[in-house]
């Protein structure tokens, strides 16, 4: 089971270090991490995905609350959130395979961002499972490069942080 920790922090140099340091000093690996500024330019949201059910996670959540640069910490269960991640994926494409790649892209709701005589770069923003599937479906065409953002998430419904 995955746990999503959503942390609102002051948008300052060094804050990300303090947060990741709480994990690294306990030799705990973060699965994914996404950082971006919120509607208030002084505040950033850090979305961290970890394996739940580990006592380290519980301890880190408590420690997060003690940092003066942290404004709010919220953990979100998978079924209570809207989570999306973005993938950019570059695949080999010849005139022979281009139409098949396009089909996959259309079925999955992706977008073509760039095209060259020998390659195509596609984009998809969706849940982690769909993004995984997208990558899987494109693998037979020979993937050249992949970039994924990691998940960003908000709670479902009207309630915010």
């Amino acid at each position: 089971m995955k746990k999503i920790i959503s942390v609102l922090v002051e948008n300052q140099a060094g804050v990300l270090n303090k947060i990741t340091g709480l994990f690294s000093r306990r030799a705990f690996n973060i699965e994914s991490l996404a950082v971006g500024v919120t509607d208030d330019k002084n505040i950033s949201r850090i979305t961290i995905i970890v394996d739940s059910g580990n006592s380290v996670v519980e301890q880190v959540e408590k420690q997060l609350n003690k940092l003066v640069d942290v404004i709010k910490v919220r953990t979100i269960e998978e079924n209570h959130m809207i989570g999306r991640e973005l993938i950019l994926i570059k695949v080999s494409a010849s005139t022979r395979t281009r139409q098949d790649i396009l089909n996959v892209c259309q079925i999955m709701g992706g977008k073509i961002d760039d095209i060259s005589p020998t390659s195509m770069t596609l984009e998809l923003s969706d849940t982690t499972e769909k993004v995984d599937l997208f990558e899987e479906l494109l693998r037979p065409f020979s993937i050249l490069e992949v970039a994924r953002t990691g998940l960003v998430a908000l709670r479902k419904g009207h309630g915010g942080d």
Binding site: N65, K66, V70, K72, V73
Partner: peptide
Amino acid sequence: ALKKRMGWGI
């Protein structure tokens, strides 16, 4: 601002 926060640092 720190005084009002949820956290218990201050």
